[in-house]
């Protein structure tokens, strides 16, 4: 059985993916809180993780729970405001399109958003995703497919309506 790596190696290896998942699931403003709570919790529990366990699936499971907690605590504290909170730009940012893509994933309904983020951004099989979000692997697969369909429509829209002069 492979011995556990130093946790620093886990952060280096999986930090970027978990950040993308958090951005897609929580949006750009809460993503860093989600990442921080995920890795702190993972560090605390790390000595008990069975050697040879799937680290990525384990991290996404923690991130999923932390995201739910964060959204709940935000909703509890939410008070009506005159101006809607600053939202990430829906316009394509002229860098690499990553923000636009993650934002589009963030607009999906929760089940679809989770299925798409965990399958396509974290690379988990639907069997693992079902174990994380509940329900059957088929249901997770359907949510992923529906999410992709919606995503393609959203991301294709500017091309159809924008046009070049």
């Amino acid at each position: 059985m492979e011995p556990r790596k130093p946790f620093e190696a886990i952060v280096q290896e999986h930090g970027p993916t978990v950040l993308r998942v958090c951005r897609a699931v929580l949006g750009p403003h809460d993503a860093e809180d989600g990442w921080s709570e995920t890795f702190l919790s993972a560090l605390q529990a790390y000595p008990e993780l069975p050697p040879g366990a799937n680290v990525e699936a384990w991290l996404v499971t923690i991130a999923h729970r932390k995201a739910i907690d964060l959204v709940r605590s935000r909703n509890r504290r939410a008070v009506p405001v005159e101006e809607p909170p600053e939202r990430h730009s829906r316009l394509g940012i002229p860098d690499d399109g990553q923000a636009e893509l993650l934002d589009a994933v963030g607009q999906l309904p929760p089940k679809q958003r989770q299925a798409v983020a965990y399958h396509y951004l974290a690379g988990l099989p639907y069997k693992d995703i079902a174990a994380i979000v509940g329900g059957t692997p088929d249901a997770a697969r359907r949510a992923g497919a529906d999410g992709i369909k919606a995503l393609r429509t959203v991301l294709a829209a500017p091309l159809l309506t924008g046009g070049t002069p």
């Binding site: 970027p16 950040l19 993308r20 690499d96 399109g97 893509l101 396509y120 995503l151 991301l155």
Partner: peptide, 19 residues
């Protein structure tokens, strides 16, 4: 479709991860 999310880290991402 997901190419932008799997692209190498941008400078902004690297700074976020450092933080």
């Amino acid at each position: 479709l997901f190419a932008p999310a799997t692209a190498p880290l941008t400078t902004a991402d690297a700074a976020a991860l450092d933080r």
